[in-house]
Every structure is written in structure tokens, then in C-alpha cells.
């Protein structure tokens, strides 16, 4: 159980690091929001599942799963709101030919 949770946490940490690199490297708002969504969906999932495995079957594990479900419902809403605000205020998306 301990080894499995360590594997999950390390995998989640890997995705979080990749997402942070993406947030720094990508050229505009829209593509950066993809990187943030990568964090939310897979990185947070793996981290929290690893932690829940470490915690074992109890009320705390259920609470961690509640946090996970909340993240899965709320974070797409936030990303969508950000991108829609950017689009409506007239920010042009980055194209391939731009510098």
C-alpha cells in the first residue's frame, strides 16, 4: 500500500512539474490554460488518489474524494470562465506564424 501511494504521488508530481513548465513556456493565454487544465485533471487526481491510498479506508479518504470531485467540477468552470472572458474582451489567440 505504501509503495503504491508513493508511486501515485510521484506520478502526480511529475505531471504538476510538466504543467508548470508548460505555464512558463507557452506563448499565450489560451495555450497556458491548457497547461493549467493538465494540472487540475491528471496531476491533482494522481496526487489525491495517492494520498487517499496512504490514508487508508476511513472518513478522511471519503473527504479527500469529495475534494477531488469538487476540483473536477469547479476547475473546468473556472478555466471556461477565464477563456471566455479573454475571448469576449477581444484577445486574439496566438497563431503558428507569429513569433
Amino acid at each position: 500500500m505504501g509503495i503504491l501511494s508513493i508511486i501515485f504521488i510521484v506520478a502526480g508530481l511529475f505531471f504538476l512539474i510538466v504543467a508548470a513548465i508548460g505555464v512558463i513556456r507557452f506563448p499565450d493565454v489560451y495555450s497556458r490554460s491548457h497547461a493549467v487544465s493538465l494540472t487540475d485533471s491528471l496531476g491533482a487526481f494522481l496526487m489525491l488518489v495517492g494520498i487517499a491510498l496512504h490514508e487508508g479506508l476511513s472518513i478522511n479518504m471519503l473527504k479527500i474524494l469529495v475534494v477531488l470531485i469538487l476540483l473536477y467540477i469547479l476547475n473546468p468552470v473556472i478555466a471556461h470562465a477565464t477563456v471566455r472572458a479573454a475571448l469576449r474582451s477581444g484577445l486574439k489567440p496566438w497563431q503558428k506564424g507569429d513569433s
Binding site: 491548457h34 487544465s37 487540475d40 476547475n75
Partner: peptide, 15 residues
Amino acid sequence: LGNSITLTPGTITAE
């Protein structure tokens, strides 16, 4: 549908 598209990395629903 919009939520699933946004949740999948690589695609984001904008409008």
C-alpha cells in the same frame, strides 16, 4: 459536453 471538453487537456471550451 462542455465540461468534458474542458476537462480533457488539450481542448478548452471558449464559448
